[in-house]
Design a protein around this nucleic acid. Structure first.
Length: 275
DNA sequence: TTGGTTGTTCGTTC
DNA sequence: TGAACGAACAACCA
């Protein structure tokens, strides 16, 4: 489930090899995930690689940004001779021969090939996606005061507010859960009922878990053993605070991690220390 | 075989 | 008006 740190990791990898390369051809294997027409970037060279929230953007200049949304199961794999760069949702495709039966779009560059894979067909590729216009600020671009302004009046559970992309961009289920744990805040608490100290702790907690996610190259998934074996994936999953830890002892040592559904999403917290 | 899982989109309600 | 909420979407896996 790629979130901000996972996409940032992909961005940092791809910009090392993609900048300056010309996009020679695009092969669409599954039109379902392609929004609009991609032809206008054919023949253009990559100027830079960007990220906005959970969206990866390849900048071809001339106001042409090729956007990718990974949703839950999207991944990008770049191959250049023997070299391979992988990112996004970890599956066996990280080490399989490309294209696989999950490959949806193939981008042929000068020196290598970029494969956009997605098991569940929820992701999308689009030039100048309107979605990014609606995004709120990046977590790292706001200070604590601005953070409080953005969330303090909302009458819905704080965890769901953290995940609203038009409030703050890039925070998904994993990091929202862990940020609440860092701040000792119950994810159900309505945002407008938090104390000043809780707002402050939540801001710091959110930044901390996102920074750590980037530091460890993102989370892949708790069950992605083969990624560790091949050393290809991130390791934030080894540092989850509460996410995916149902039934385990709280890392603060007094309480058991509970799981419940909030806004239709799996939510993890320690009833002892998160109030 | 069926239910759980996920982020965004979209429709409904207040 | 806009905020809150919940179903829908697709496909894999336990």
């Amino acid at each position: 489930m790629p979130e901000l740190p996972e996409i940032e990791t992909v961005k940092l990898q791809l910009e090392k090899i993609l900048i300056g390369q010309k996009l020679k051809d695009i092969k669409i294997l599954s039109g379902k995930i392609v929004r609009g027409n991609l032809d206008s970037v054919k023949g253009k060279s990559v100027k830079s690689v960007k990220r906005m929230g959970k969206v990866l953007l390849i900048d071809f200049g001339s106001d042409l940004l090729l956007g990718f949304h990974f949703k839950m199961t999207g991944q990008l794999i770049y191959e250049d001779g023997g070299k391979r760069i992988v990112g996004g949702h970890p599956t066996e495709d990280f080490v399989n021969k490309m294209p696989s039966n999950h490959t949806r779009v193939i981008f042929n560059f000068d020196k290598g090939t970029l494969y956009f894979n997605d098991q569940r067909l929820f992701g999308w590729v689009e030039i100048n996606p309107k979605f990014v216009d609606k995004l709120g600020p990046e977590p790292f671009e706001i200070d604590e005061k601005k953070f409080v302004e953005l969330v303090c009046k909302r009458k819905k559970p704080i965890k769901l507010v953290l995940m609203e992309q038009d409030v703050i961009s890039g925070v998904g289920n994993i990091y929202a859960n862990d940020a609440c744990w860092e701040a000792k805040v119950n994810p159900r608490r309505l945002a407008n009922t938090l104390t000043a100290k809780q707002f402050s702790d939540l801001y710091k907690g959110m930044i901390k878990v996102l920074e750590e996610g980037i530091k460890y190259g993102g989370a892949t998934a708790a069950d992605a053993k083969y990624i560790d074996l091949h050393g290809l994936g991130g390791h934030y999953q080894d540092h989850f605070r509460v996410y995916d830890r149902e039934g385990e002892e709280c890392l603060r040592g007094d309480g058991i991690v509970h799981k419940f559904v909030l806004g239709g999403r799996g939510t993890y917290y320690c009833p002892k220390c998160q109030v």
